[in-house]
Simulated assay, not measured.
Amino acid sequence: MNPTVVLVHGAMHTPWIFDPLRERLTARGIVSRAVRLPSSDRDSAAAQGLTEDVAVVRAEIAAVGGPVVLAAHSYGGVPATWAAAEADEVAELVYVAAFALEAGASMMQWMGGDFPPTWIHSPDGLAVKAGDAEESVFSGVDPDLTAEAVKRLNWQGLRAFTEKLGAAPAGVPVSYVVATKDPALPPAVQEQWASRAAHSLRVPSGHSPHLSHADEVAGFLAEAVARAAAR
């Protein structure tokens, strides 16, 4: 059975953000699914946290009913890491300009205890949203696609940032896509995480290589699928 690619989006996003990448995977004969994380919601009061995100990712992996290449972008790397530690079906974990935190760490700790000054807090104090997404998240992406992506951004629940990563996989092969022009997640940090990965790819991209360099990312995921199928 060929592995299925399960995609985990970043903070404030929805599964829609992977549509261009999924089209390219389909063209290569690769089946994909995209998770909707409950930490991202139009309603700030409904936006949940890391624990709920992990449960949804694990459920999606189980629903595949076979081997999975789990690929995550940005914050999505945190619930994906935890889920991969608890799901035997994960044949490879691929970080796409994503956070590869150590178990016991939180996003808030990584950010130094506070959110970027350009981020907006919801009136109820339960969620945040990037106020400079055009530059920080979507730099280098087609302007029309960027405009649509910004329009679709949700609130991100605070617990996604404050809850600590409960586990990280020990025996799962890891790959990393480094975005070398990323203004949001420093490329030097991505390189540190990539140095521990079995396979890596570097693309001259901002924080969203799955949008700006979808062909290259699809090719990298296809290689992961081929490796997983051969195991």
Rank of each mutant, 00 (worst) to 15 (best):
M1P: 12
T4F: 06
T4Q: 15
L7W: 07
G10I: 03
F18A: 08
R24V: 01
L25I: 02
A27V: 00
V31F: 14
R36L: 08
S39Q: 08
R42G: 10
R42Y: 06
D43K: 00
D43E: 08
S44E: 04
S44A: 14
L50R: 15
V54D: 15
V54R: 11
V57N: 06
R58H: 13
A62V: 13
V68F: 10
V69N: 09
A72E: 03
A83E: 01
A84K: 00
A84E: 00
A85N: 03
A85D: 01
E86Y: 05
E86A: 08
E92P: 04
L93W: 00
F99C: 15
E102P: 00
A103S: 08
A103F: 07
W110G: 11
M111L: 05
M111C: 02
G112L: 11
I120H: 13
S122K: 02
D132E: 08
S139A: 12
G140S: 03
D142Q: 05
D142F: 06
A147R: 08
E148T: 03
R152Y: 15
W155M: 01
R159L: 12
R159Q: 09
A160L: 14
F161H: 02
L165A: 05
G166R: 10
A167M: 12
V172N: 03
S175H: 07
S175E: 05
T180P: 02
D182Y: 10
P186R: 13
P186H: 14
P187I: 14
Q190Y: 10
A197I: 04
P209R: 04
H210K: 06
E216C: 13
A218R: 13
A218H: 01
F220S: 14
A224H: 07
A229W: 07
A229I: 07
R231H: 04
